[in-house]
Structure formats: C-alpha cells, structure tokens
C-alpha cells in the first residue's frame, strides 16, 4: 500500500478538523483535541498548520474549492440555465447530506465568527473560488437571455441565502422531509425569481 502523500494527510486532517469544528464550534475546539482525534502529536499537527487561525482559513479555502469545482462542472455542461439551477441545488444538498461537516463549517464557523477570519480572509478572498463560478453562472445566464439583468449581489443573495438557509434549518432537524425532497420546488422558485420576463 503506497504511503499517503503530504497532501493526502493534510486533507484527512482537514476532514477530521471540520467534523470537530462543526460539532463543537470554533472556540471549543483546540489544536490538541484535533491532534488527539487524528492520532498524531500536537507538534506534528503544527507542522501542517501553523495556528488554529491558519487551519480555519485553509478549511474555508478547501471548501470553496470543492464547491467551486462542482459549480464549474455544471457551468461547462451544455444544459439550459434552468437545468443548471437544478444541478447546483442538487449538488449543494448532496454535499450537505454526504459531507455535512463542510456546509456546517461554512454556516456555523465562517459566517458566524467573522472576528476569526478578519485578518487572513478579508472581503471575499477566501471564498473566491466559489463566488467566481457563481459570477460566471449569472453572467452566462443573462448573456444568453434566460435570466434578467440585475445587480450581482441581489441575485447571489437570493440563490445562496436560500440554499444556506435551507441547509441551516435541516441542520437543526426542523425539516419534516428529507432535504432532497425539497430540491425540485426550491430550484423552481429560484428559476422563476431570476428568469427574464
């Protein structure tokens, strides 16, 4: 069996850290507790991440890249804008279901503890991989006439606020039905809200 590369180890550390952060919150989780969960020494953990803040930043970059790559694949598919909306909603909810720690981290750590990220993640720089793909989705939708032209943030807020809100409620176990059963109506609502007259 081949030895895992440093990159692979970094990713497995990040996955475990994500679980801890999203369950216990940013401040309750410590580097020693992360190291213990992984089964490595704290000193070795610091070889991969120089501080908890740096780890927090690398985690958000990692998640943004995952989401960005998924949306890019959808952007590059030869499907209609309406189908792309369905695909993005489906992808987002699938990740929320299969890898809940990623979206939970985003909602409950990144969005909720701005002070942690203010020095190393100003503005939107750390979620740039994801936001860029959404910009491309919107730009192409308007260019081909399927979406109404409007301010980027109005449209972005509608789309992402909606999805984030649904995942948040799901995380609180408030939704009576499984998350995926809401996909179609949500995608339809988004499409009807954004489409050109």
């Amino acid at each position: 069996m081949a030895r895992p590369t440093k990159e692979d180890r970094k990713i497995s550390i990040m996955t475990k850290a994500l679980e801890l952060f999203s369950k216990e919150g940013f401040y309750q989780t410590t580097m020693p507790s992360i190291a213990e969960k992984i089964g490595m020494s704290v000193g070795n953990l610091y070889n991969y991440f120089t501080s908890k803040e740096m780890l927090a930043k690398d985690l958000i970059l990692y998640i943004a890249n995952i989401l960005g790559d998924e949306i890019r694949k959808i952007n590059e598919s030869p499907i209609s804008t309406q189908e792309k909306i369905e695909a993005i909603v489906h992808m987002y909810f699938r990740i929320a279901k299969d890898r809940p720690e990623t979206i939970e981290y985003f909602l409950r750590v990144y969005l909720s503890n701005r002070e942690v990220f203010q020095n190393c993640c100003e503005g939107m720089i750390c979620v740039s991989a994801f936001v860029t793909e959404m910009m491309i989705f919107f730009e192409e939708g308007v260019r081909c006439g399927e979406l109404r032209d409007q301010d980027f943030f109005s449209a972005f807020g509608l789309f992402m606020g909606y999805l984030g809100g649904m995942v948040f409620i799901h995380g609180e176990n408030i939704l009576p039905k499984p998350l995926e059963s809401y996909e179609h109506t949500i995608a339809e609502n988004i499409y009807y809200a954004l489409k050109s007259r």
Binding site: S128, A129, F138, D151, F152, F153, A155
Partner: peptide, 20 residues
Amino acid sequence: TYMSIPSEMPLGIPKRSYLA
C-alpha cells in the same frame, strides 16, 4: 454588464481569471 459583470474582458484574459 451582465449581472454586474463586464461583457467584454481585457484582451486575451479568460473570464474566470479576470473574475477571480
């Protein structure tokens, strides 16, 4: 602009790179 994004990119610059 299309949704606040310029319709024409600087010469030879890919849209993704410019927007990032």
